[in-house]
Design a protein around this nucleic acid. Structure first.
Lengths: 306, 306
DNA sequence: GATTTATCATCGGTTTTCTCGATCAAAAAA
DNA sequence: TTTTTTGATCGAGAAAACCGATGATAAATC
């Protein structure tokens, strides 16, 4: 392919079409007449055709020149529109944002903060993906997601994380359970409990065990729940006890059940950390930190975190 | 307005979008990696936003970058289409051609040659304007017409002309006229004739008088016809005699009348010259000369000129 | 017909931009 | 740790764009 016309050359031609005069067109383009003249010659050479009819009394465009000018106007305006596009996109927290969230956060946090978030950032278009940590981590790296909302710590190579707030683990049992009224409940006390946990893959399981310094009991469990609501059902049915994130409880996950919760003692308090993660190289990290602050603020207002 | 992105920069971005790799993208653009890197930085600077997410394992575009690439592809292809447009328009005798013709040529010549012309130059779009010489000359200068078909000589400042063929003047009278069978008819003999002529403005009038070295008889005429058919009607009605272009006679203008014609003697033969004219500055003069040759050839074939 | 004016082309030199090759830094891979 | 990959950066050189002056030519005017 031969050299296409340059935008500058097209501007010269447009200007000439408007003034029908080399000198005036040159002024309008803030260049000298010689520059414009040379530019137009180069343009004609690239297109391989005469566009301008030079006369001693002004210049006029050929039929082809007219057509080229029309298209050129279009091209120039499209090119300039790119600047506007970028300008609009530069506004923080606007445009599409693909967010991955883990299932033990999503249903408790998002419904409480999304309305306010929408109000604050009208141009933000959140695309939500709910999946287990390894899956969304993988998608983050592949560029299919821009941002993760998950529980930390979690090994995310090449990612930068921002801790938002701690989410304590609460011991949950039926109100007729022997520990239902325990005041100080040290983690060790749970070793003898038939703790029910989520199935493998859910980071909640690992975080809960780690936070309380408990062994991994996989295999010893009669059932592994596939979701937190299922787990709660099982506890309510008296199959066992469990550890629940305070956020879920605050969000009303136990409403309508006979389950009570007791805080687990310890220093630090056994908890997981809710946080954001994004690719280190992401140019939107400033936006993400802003969003993080918003989430903290809104979660606190909603009573999900003290 | 800030500097819009350059086409080159957009090409860099497109190439990067396809390869997701600075080095490979640079190769594809036939520049070095450093050049492409600098070009993309300049592009980002002009747009005022990050388009590329640089990672150690290849690069990827931001959401904005994706959008920009899509539009950039469009812009580039439009710019390159201009070359094609010019290429297509460069084919001789194609596209629009605004032709002005005088009324004493138009109805006799055009119907005979237009069909063949259309066959030869399928892409030619002839826009015809029929008017008196001064009017079409004015329009030629104003750029409203590209080409004139008229009778020469005619004063056309700033125009270039091409003579096509001579069109002799024939003496025309009713067949019962005393000169109807004259063999050698010298121009001087016409001085005593009540010659009917077209009204002022028609060049045919001036050409006829000049060719036969006759005085301008305006005012002395009882009637001045407004068109050649009218003039012929008048002669047929016995109001007088006239001089007719041979072309009109050959085209059958006298069919159905009792008019006969006799050649006028003289050296050179009293005649007008049919020719083309265009602005000296017109870049299509080559095309016009081609068209001129076609007209001569087709007119001869049609028997309009010996 | 000579002169002036208007207009665009052209030329040499200068400034700006673009490009290259080499090198550097950082992350990933081995 | 060492090696490899990958993009950023820097200085030098090449290319281009640009300017100002001059030239050429047709039109307008005297």
């Amino acid at each position: 392919m031969i050299n296409p016309p340059s935008l500058q050359q097209l501007k010269y031609l447009i200007s000439l079409a408007e003034t029908r005069h080399f000198g005036q067109a040159a002024d309008a383009c803030a260049v000298t007449q010689s520059t414009l003249s040379a530019g137009l010659q180069e343009l004609e050479s690239r297109l391989g055709a005469k566009l301008v009819e030079r006369r001693k009394r002004g210049a006029m465009l050929t039929a082809l020149g007219q057509q080229v000018v029309e298209r050129a106007r279009h091209i120039i305006s499209e090119a300039e529109a790119l600047v506007d596009l970028a300008q609009a996109a530069r506004e923080p927290l606007s445009g599409p944002l693909k967010l991955g969230v883990i299932p033990t956060i999503s249903p408790y946090l998002l419904p409480r903060i999304m309305p306010a978030l929408r109000r604050r950032h009208g141009k933000l278009r959140l695309y939500l993906t709910e999946d287990l940590s390894p899956r969304i981590a993988e998608k983050l790296d592949a560029g299919e997601l821009d941002l993760l909302l998950l529980a930390l710590p979690y090994d995310l190579p090449g990612a930068e994380t921002m801790a938002l707030f701690d989410d304590a683990f609460l011991f949950a049992c039926r109100k007729d359970h022997e520990l239902a009224r325990a005041n100080a409940l040290p983690p060790e006390r749970l070793n003898s409990e038939p703790l029910l946990l989520l199935q493998d893959g859910h980071c909640l399981r690992d975080h809960a065990l780690a936070a309380c310094n408990l062994m991994n009991r996989r295999g010893a469990q009669p059932f592994q729940a596939t979701s937190l609501p299922t787990l709660i059902q099982m506890v309510d049915n008296g199959i066992g006890t469990t550890l629940l994130p305070a956020m879920a409880v605050a969000a009303g996950a136990l409403k309508g059940t006979g389950i009570v919760t007791r805080p687990v003692t310890g220093a630090p308090t056994p908890s997981r950390t809710i946080g954001l993660a994004w690719r280190k190289a992401s140019p939107r990290h400033d936006e993400f930190r802003l969003l993080g602050r918003d989430i903290v603020e809104l979660s606190t207002k909603a009573g999900l975190t003290p």
